[in-house]
Nucleic acid binder design. Structure first.
Lengths: 142, 142
DNA sequence: CTTATATATCGAAATGGATGGATATGGTCT
DNA sequence: AGACCATATCCATCCATTTCGATATATAAG
């Protein structure tokens, strides 16, 4: 499908010898990502981007215990008000938290669903990386 | 514990009236994040950071099908060699993929464990955000 | 209407990350 | 040895993000 570049086929041909098979393999590789359109990938990457900050992870942790207003969160993370507000808006537009206006307060809570599982998974991944990191140094066995 | 700033207690006192209770609440908020030391948060955020790029998500998707060499990945994602290599090194040092040297080739595969679940969760989160997104937010940035 | 407070937004500096061409490294083959 | 190739690294440019003080908006209360 779509534009298979001659360059890629050339390179693949050098790799595996047979030009027909090479073209086939390039097609297969390209087709693996055809169903992933750029928009979707970008949307997903934005979710990860929103979690890619220590302060925002701290906020999410705070909210595991229930709803808090921006002011309490600011105290919890110990950052200036404008920074806290900025982080909250990023988390909100990524869909990770929900906002509820209550008088002059903005109260935030975790979105239902996968957020907590995501945090747990990240912790698991970090831990397993720590373990292997020490025993294995840098060389991966052949 | 540790340094409860007078400023935070003042602010909390204004919020809930009673100074003793305020101090107590500040302590509770701070204690929620005491067990999260900065190093750990940073390590976790790096995992998310590594996944916070469309091209890298594409690479991870490619690798769901099995081991590939850098060259094949480069064809799959259709980016210059240096960019591809750069992304691979980020994924590797975040512990999301593993490298195996084989002659002049570097072959990459997903790390065992949580990577795939993470990708699935992200998709679920994106989808549920899309659905709810229409009803509520319209914070599409310009 | 004025004051006070909670939150959002602006603006500018500093930092960080992506990109891709050029070059270096290290393996393979003849 | 030399040629070739896969991959990593270097470097410079560009773009995005973080940070935080200053300011604006909004709501409540006197």
């Amino acid at each position: 499908m779509s534009s298979i570049s001659k360059e890629a086929v050339d390179r693949m041909t050098r790799l595996i010898g047979d030009r027909d098979k090479a073209e086939c393999k390039v097609n297969r590789l390209r087709s693996l990502t055809v169903d992933l359109d750029e928009e979707e990938l970008k949307a997903e990457s934005e979710i990860f981007q929103a979690m890619a900050d220590p302060c925002r992870l701290k906020i999410l942790s705070l909210l595991r215990d229930g709803e808090l207003c921006a002011c309490e969160i600011m105290i919890g993370v110990d950052r200036p008000q404008s920074s806290t507000s900025h982080h909250l808006s990023i988390l909100k537009s990524a869909g990770l938290i929900k906002e509820r206006k209550d008088g002059r307060w903005s109260k935030y809570r975790l979105s239902e669903g996968a957020v907590i599982e995501m945090l747990n998974l990240a912790q698991i991944m970090k831990d397993s990386k720590d373990e292997r990191g020490n025993s294995n140094d840098k060389i991966v066995k052949a």
